[in-house]
Amino acid sequence: MHNSSRRGFMGKAFGAVAGVGVVGSLVAMKKTWDPLPSVKAAGFTTLDMSIYPEGELITEKWRGKPIFVLKKTAEMVASQTESQKARDVVVGDSHFMIAIGLCTHLGCIPGYNAAEKSFLCACHGGQFNWAGEVTKVPPPRGFDIPPFKIEGNKMILGEAGPEYQAMKDSGVTL
């Protein structure tokens, strides 16, 4: 048998050391694929909540994603169920529906029908109501809510304030 083509003890030891080097460089390679610090730093958006008209859906942008902002009308506020209240975002004395405007099924942007006050996702027919709850499958849950923090009239997206934390803890959003 070819003896020297088989690795002896030192051959295996050398292979192990080389393997450590390969693993080390894989770690560096993995980190090279990570999102850049400049991408992560761009993760905050500040919204002035005093400018939104009632009952109209406005789309903002945060981390490249659409953010739905709907200032609720007085009737909407009055008619809110318990579960809808749980998703309600209050700034000053205005009530808002704030959500990441991507369908929780596979990420298309649902369209808002102002007359029906509901969202329809064209991709696979999912539906949501004006409060952001899912009303028709396939989407598994209501709209996700982006981390937010309320500071006076302003809302900072990307930072988790107490109101957001409460929603997260109670499972209203993922």
């Binding site: 003896n3 020297s4 002896g8 030192m10 051959g11 030891a13 050398f14 050391v17 080389a18």
Partner: peptide, 15 residues
Amino acid sequence: FAIFALLWKKQVWRD
């Protein structure tokens, strides 16, 4: 790494 390479070479070349 170089030391282990050297030791491996020594072992292989003994024969």
